[in-house]
Each structure stands twice: as C-alpha cells, then as structure tokens.
Amino acid sequence: MERQGITTVAIQLLREVAQRVRPPRALWVPFAHGYPLGRPGEPLLQHAVIEAALRLLEVHTLRPPVLVDFE
C-alpha cells in the first residue's frame, strides 16, 4: 500500500513479528490475541489505541521501520 501512495499504520500484537517483518509503522499493543484494541465494549480504550496509531502518522521525524509501544 505504501508503494502505491497510501500511508499505513499497523496494530501489532507480537513485537517479535514486527521486528522480523518490519512494516513501515507499527504500534505494539499489550493485549492478548483476539483483543487488538483492548476490550469489547470499551470505546474509550479503543479510541486511545487508534489515536496512538494515528499519531505515528503525524511525527515527521520518524523513519522506517517504526515500532512504538502503546502506553
């Protein structure tokens, strides 16, 4: 997608996979498989994760591959 001009950011559940595969921008989240945005029925937490991912798009000093922890 990046090669076709679409800016991407990926949620990542396994840090070691992101380190090996190297997507352009990844946000590692400390949640179990099946729960990439945290918990069901908790929109505030889901928004917090998405917001952290979107912020990676706005930091123009970052260089690929980007891997940042959600805190």
Partner: peptide, 8 residues
C-alpha cells in the same frame, strides 16, 4: 490516503 491495519 490512510489505511489502519488491524490484526486479531
């Protein structure tokens, strides 16, 4: 412009 990639 932007794609948000979400695993499971």
């Amino acid at each position: 412009d932007v794609a948000l990639l979400v695993p499971v």
